[in-house]
Design a protein around this nucleic acid. Structure first.
Lengths: 341, 341
DNA sequence: CTGAAAGCGCTTACAG
DNA sequence: CTGAAAGCGCTTACAG
């Protein structure tokens, strides 16, 4: 039938190209995917037809048969946190370099959100998932991994088929930060922990590192120096205000993350304390803001190769269905700046 | 043929369900999409079969025929900027509420990146694009819009079929900020502009607003008070340092954005200036950080309904192919806090 | 109320 | 070196 009743799509298809080039769809497919196995004359005709029609492969149709979408799901607590924003940026860069695309989803630490994110992403047949932990998502992870979905879990250890775990050495990083402060002659170090993680099942790795550092230096932990609040600027401010109000002496602060450190600095400044002269301070995560502050904030930098490592781990899972790889540690590095120099 | 040689997919399909429920695929489709037109007994059998097989619709296959993927492309300069991170968060929330998913891409203000982003996203047959401007992307936008892709452009005006423009009233916001400072008795107001946008084709809307506010107050612009640098903390610091070094008197600062304001505050504090006593300051964008600073930073809040407006605009474009809607203004609102109180 | 047929745009065996 | 056929998992007309 020469006259098609249906409204033709504006976008040319493989068959349109084939017709114009007077070859089969199979041959066009070979050219498009650079498979070789066609003569120079045919190649020229096909290329010409592609140019004339403005043909673009439909990746949906391709994915339906190859079972590879080229889409990876990135699941995070929230991008509003600068630490996660910077990570999202890195994952985006690595994905782009590898010709992959990212569907982005936030779970905001709500268990229900994790469930629907899994539903949605797996219905799009994503090639895999890279996800940051939300409490209580273990069941959903296991279920979808068992169904064949490769999942790279970050900062959560789970040994199961089709699941890879990358885990930052947070405890070690915390220990090195506190050891650094001790080495600078500070001995009364406030530890600002995360109130929320204290409530969760996760062990407080920063606090453990803090304790080990003191122990290694032959010091005992003074419980009055350990405070916990929200992992935000406001939380840091409140935490330091409470320590100041308690009248306990201190000469350094190790904060749960950089935002907490910023809040601590605010509270210290308001109280007339000078940094680092009166109080040295070290944050955690080493977000971009650290270097821009005055004084610049020392911090524990998490391995920013995590993007590459995550996609590598995904590759391994994809090429070895059912594999249950060992957890991979991600290194941490103390970055010393003026706030504790 | 009862025995299939191919390895069966772990995931059940519509046909698997149909076979088990002893109905046609068409009927299962009706149930899954809640189209009605089936008896209660059939419904029960199908639901049962869906439960037994763990069937999940394959959205790729559905999209291939419906020509709706449920995926929208979100294109931004970069998420590392807290302003865009907060916007990404908002778009994400609205998308989730509407049952849509976001493929996320950053162009980092590189023209080449915009081109490849368009290629990729349109090959996935996304339902539409929401994008923040990169200089020189007009051709690519027009080309893909002409091809039928609905595009919502934010902070860039372009009248073309299948393109909607949402544009913040940045000039008005700037004007209100400066008028507010004048009303607080400040008359020597430093304007920190963006060096980069000065070089681009975009008119410096904040600077225009600044000038209008002074003009309305019967004041003349002192060119020595207008400085330009990068839109970053460091840029703000450098800008104020240069003004301080020049010896020109000033009693207020209006900054290109909040990060610039933070840098300005740092430079002012280092110089022993008190805020707002010696120098009042107003930022732009009203990122979350503003409220957390001490003193809290006044800022111009851009309409944070932009998420809803963008998706609404996309809806309109999708339902009216070829439409070239009028640009929609997005309101701005001055948020007064301690830094200029 | 239910189903058989065709097709979305591509790739995968297979044949020559 | 090239092509005809079948099929990925779904929906869209259409028929009864």
């Amino acid at each position: 039938m020469l006259f098609n009743v249906r409204v033709p799509h504006p976008n040319a298809t493989l068959n349109d190209v084939a017709r114009l080039a007077r070859v089969s769809a199979r041959t066009v497919s070979r050219v498009v995917n650079d498979e070789g196995g066609f003569g120079p004359e045919v190649l020229a005709r096909v290329q010409d037809a592609i140019a004339k029609t403005g043909y673009r492969p439909n990746r949906l149709a391709r994915a339906l048969v190859t079972r590879r979408t080229g889409i990876v799901g990135l699941v995070m607590p929230n991008v509003t946190d600068p630490y996660f924003a910077e990570l999202a940026d890195e994952f985006q860069t690595v994905a782009q370099n590898r010709g992959l695309n990212l569907i982005f989803a936030q779970h905001r630490n709500e268990v229900a959100a994790v469930g629907s994110i899994f539903e949605t992403l797996s219905s799009f047949a994503v090639d895999g998932l890279i996800m940051y932990t939300a409490k209580g998502n273990v069941t959903a992870v296991l279920e979808h991994a068992a169904g064949g979905l490769p999942i790279v879990l970050i900062d959560q250890v789970l040994e199961a088929p089709n699941v890879a775990s990358l885990c930052s050495t947070i405890g070690e990083g915390a220990e090195s930060a506190v050891t650094h402060l001790l080495g600078r002659g500070r001995s009364r170090i406030v530890m600002i922990g995360n109130q929320q993680s204290a409530l969760s099942a996760l062990t407080p790795r920063r606090e453990n590192g803090y304790q080990r550092a003191l122990h290694n230096a032959g010091l005992v932990v003074d419980g009055r120096l350990i405070v916990r609040d929200d992992p935000t600027i406001e939380g840091g401010r409140r935490a330091i205000e409470s320590v100041l109000a308690s009248g306990v002496e201190f000469d350094a602060v190790f904060a749960y993350n950089d935002l907490v450190a910023v809040g601590a600095i605010q509270a210290l400044s308001s109280a007339g304390k000078r940094i680092p002269d009166d109080v040295a301070i070290v944050g955690f995560d080493d977000i971009n803001l650290c270097a821009a502050l005055v004084p610049a904030l020392s911090s524990v930098r998490l391995n920013r190769e995590v993007g590459i490592q995550a996609f590598d781990a995904l590759d391994v899972l994809q090429n070895n269905p059912g594999l249950s790889p060992l957890p991979v540690p991600l290194s941490t590095e103390l970055v010393i700046r003026a706030s504790s120099g």
